[in-house]
Design a protein around this nucleic acid. Structure first.
Lengths: 137, 137
DNA sequence: CTTACTTCCGTACTTAAGTACGGAGTCAAG
DNA sequence: CTTGACTCCGTACTTAAGTACGGAAGTAAG
């Protein structure tokens, strides 16, 4: 048995399982246009492959980073390679946004790890720099 | 006129304006316990200061990074300095989570900036590494 | 060929995170 | 001391992102 058996012929259920989401979520993404509805090779049941799996995983990851489905769909539009100039401008705007988030997240990282360090050292009460972490700028 | 006039005696409306949110949002956070309801120095109207402003800004920043209000409230609980051991464990779990997000966000950053570069160089169609960026691991 | 499990599709329900609304009380200016 | 803006509070509405449901039709195993 292969490690990715029949990955190019998954049913919607298999896709959902592979991506760790609900079947209804897949269908919801299709309705929203975030995921294409592939054709039905034999009969009337659709089959999904690695591309679709990648997309679903991408969506979930981007969401975890605070992107809304609308934003994800903009990100995905950049991916198709057409209207390059437009995509480039769009990508640059997103990049600014992403870099701000990175900076925020890095400050949280620093604050949390300092909290862990200190808490390790001083047993007792201390005031943590968590809120201050996101004050800068 | 000072740059932060009366920052220790803001009304709810001033606080909301300063934080860039709706008055109702402030009240909503109070109901959720994310924000304390300060006492009313003179009469029956509450006054807010820099601490509350910091909190609201923290909440909004954390949300932008994909933390839910429940998660934010856990983060805020770490801040009070009591039950240190517990907080430390909690902080360490969050830290793992935050570092995963950082890695994802860094991959998106790399993919976007590569997209901008390439789009600059090759005029025409190309396939961007955006989805692939979040496949790793 | 039947039986059990899926898929498909539309519609309805749920949860999180606000937003809006309406009436009563408060406060500062004119 | 009234007028206009604001606060307080409770309740109701909205939006995004799913989740659940129910009936018809497809499909794989026995």
């Amino acid at each position: 048995m292969n490690s990715t058996p029949e990955i190019e012929a998954m049913t919607i259920g298999a896709l959902a399982r592979a991506a760790g989401v609900n079947v209804e979520t897949i269908r919801f993404y299709q309705r929203k246009g975030l995921l294409p509805e592939p054709d039905r090779p034999q009969g009337s049941i659709r089959r999904y492959g690695a591309d679709e799996l990648g997309r679903v995983r991408f969506i979930k990851s981007a969401q975890r980073l605070g992107f809304s489905l609308d934003e994800v769909s903009e990100l995905l539009k950049l991916e198709d390679g057409s209207h390059c100039a437009e995509a480039r401008a769009q990508a640059q705007r997103k990049l600014v946004d992403v870099r701000e988030r990175l900076a925020d997240l890095q400050r949280i990282e620093a604050a949390l790890s300092e909290l862990v360090q200190r808490c390790n050292a001083i047993r007792g009460r201390m005031r943590c720099p968590l809120i201050a972490a996101l004050q800068a700028e």
